[in-house]
């Protein structure tokens, strides 16, 4: 942020005391380390999915499973359509989050409020889409421990597919939900002028990191479950 740092200090000097070696506040550094540990949690889920899929002879075809969308006529066959919408909702809400962080850096309260509201709407829209999809799959007979979908080659499938699907998208959805709650708290704090009083909007930046991470995880979940 500061434009006064002209000479880049050597490694020894940056750790010599008197300045922030990472040039970042404590909370932000800790948010990064939390996100790193969360990445390992999601990574463990996705790798176990991959391991089970690699160790199984057959696997359901995602295009045959995820092929409907809200208000679709019965028996519609539209693979990838609905999940594309979900993906774009999350990307757009990530963009509005960046804009909110940027507005915060400029101490632009109106910009923060506007973009936080848009981000929250995006998050709620995504959760609604996921709720619809879960409900739809449940009514098709899919749930933890129940898999009505045959393998792509027409052989009998195990319940691994639905177990992993509901566990991983559920865990991700829980993160989205937490992110929406955090964003709502940030919006309320902005409206109460908390950050104006503090003189900075660094909290928005930390909430933003979390929200981008949720988007990042969806990039992986979307690709691995729906495309591969």
């Amino acid at each position: 942020m500061s434009t006064t740092t002209t000479a880049s200090p050597t490694e020894a000097k940056s750790w010599g005391g008197g300045k922030s070696p990472f040039n970042a506040e404590y909370g932000k550094v800790m948010m990064w380390y939390f996100l790193m540990s969360d990445a390992f949690t999601f990574g463990a889920f996705l790798i176990s999915y991959g391991t089970v899929r690699f160790s199984t002879n057959g696997w359901p075809d995602p295009n045959a499973v995820f092929k409907s969308f809200p208000f679709a006529p019965e028996g519609v066959n539209a693979p990838l359509v609905f999940v594309s919408v979900m993906t774009f909702i999350l990307i757009v809400s990530s963009v509005t989050m960046v804009l909110a962080v940027q507005a915060g850096k400029n101490m632009d309260k109106q910009g923060v409020v506007r973009n936080m509201i848009l981000t929250i709407i995006g998050g709620i829209a995504f959760l609604s889409c996921q709720a619809w999809e879960w409900n739809h799959l449940f009514h098709e007979g899919a749930w933890w421990g129940a898999n009505p979908f045959l393998n792509a080659d027409g052989t009998a499938s195990s319940t691994n597919f639905t177990n992993f699907f509901f566990t991983i998208t559920g865990f991700h959805g829980f993160h989205v939900f937490s992110g929406v709650v955090i964003n709502i708290i940030m919006l309320i704090m902005t409206l109460m002028d908390k950050f104006e009083q503090r003189g900075h909007y660094l909290m928005i930046e930390k909430a933003g990191l979390y929200w981008h991470f949720v988007d990042l995880v969806w990039v992986f979940v979307f690709t691995i479950f729906y495309l591969l």
Binding site: N57, G141, T155, S158
Partner: peptide, 27 residues
Amino acid sequence: YQEQATIKVEKKEHGAKHEGTHEVKPA
């Protein structure tokens, strides 16, 4: 185990879901 992976099965009928463990059969 290997033979199971070569046997085609019929897709279950829609409706009457989640009523028993026999709804979905593993291999």
